[in-house]
């Protein structure tokens, strides 16, 4: 070989692993609820606290959440973040606001997008309501909720949100 080539300093090695994912009993129950436009919370067999979504256990009791109850699609913002940086896997136009929302009747918060008001108006304690996609688009996913929209209700005082950071 007459021409001098640069030394090799890096290689590219594609790695591809394929799986068939199954969500588990409690998650499947939740997802089947989503498909019907319902938000199903799992109730801890031991302490009765309500989880949404439940991954199958109440982590503080290590007990199953074998019973379910439908929750309201209204809730209160516990905390939030305005995202101005792109992330792989997230197909939402920047900037956007995500919030931890405590649905009425739940004992744990749940992440959702907030739209329908300027970012400056989003605040801890604000009441919000789920806005669902058209029923024809419902799938086995909490993504059936397009976003949460402010409710015309008084804020919940911060002191009353204690224990739900």
């Amino acid at each position: 070989m007459s021409e001098e080539r640069e030394p090799v300093t890096r290689i590219v090695t594609p790695v591809r692993v394929a799986y068939t994912y199954t969500p588990g009993i409690a998650s499947e129950r939740f997802l089947r609820g989503c498909k019907e436009g319902k938000l199903l919370g799992g109730i801890c067999d031991a302490c009765g606290r309500v989880y949404i979504p439940s991954r199958g256990a109440c982590p503080r009791c290590a007990a199953p959440t074998s019973k379910f109850q439908e929750l309201s699609d209204q809730g209160t913002i516990i905390t939030f973040c305005i995202v101005r940086v792109p992330a792989e896997n997230i197909a939402v136009d920047l900037p956007y606001c995500t919030a931890s929302i405590l649905l009425d009747g739940a004992d744990i918060s749940f992440t959702g997008l907030i739209q329908g008001c300027p970012f400056e108006d989003v605040r801890i304690g604000m009441r919000v309501q789920a806005i669902w996609k058209p029923e024809s688009e419902w799938d086995y996913s909490v993504g059936n909720i397009e976003h949460f929209h402010p409710l015309d209700e008084p804020d919940i005082p911060f002191k009353d949100l204690k224990g739900y950071s």
Binding site: T22, G24, I25, A26, A57, A62, A63, P64
Partner: peptide, 15 residues
Amino acid sequence: ERVRNEVEMLMPIID
């Protein structure tokens, strides 16, 4: 194990 996820498999045996 198509029904239970890892947590659901573990809970009974840890208990």
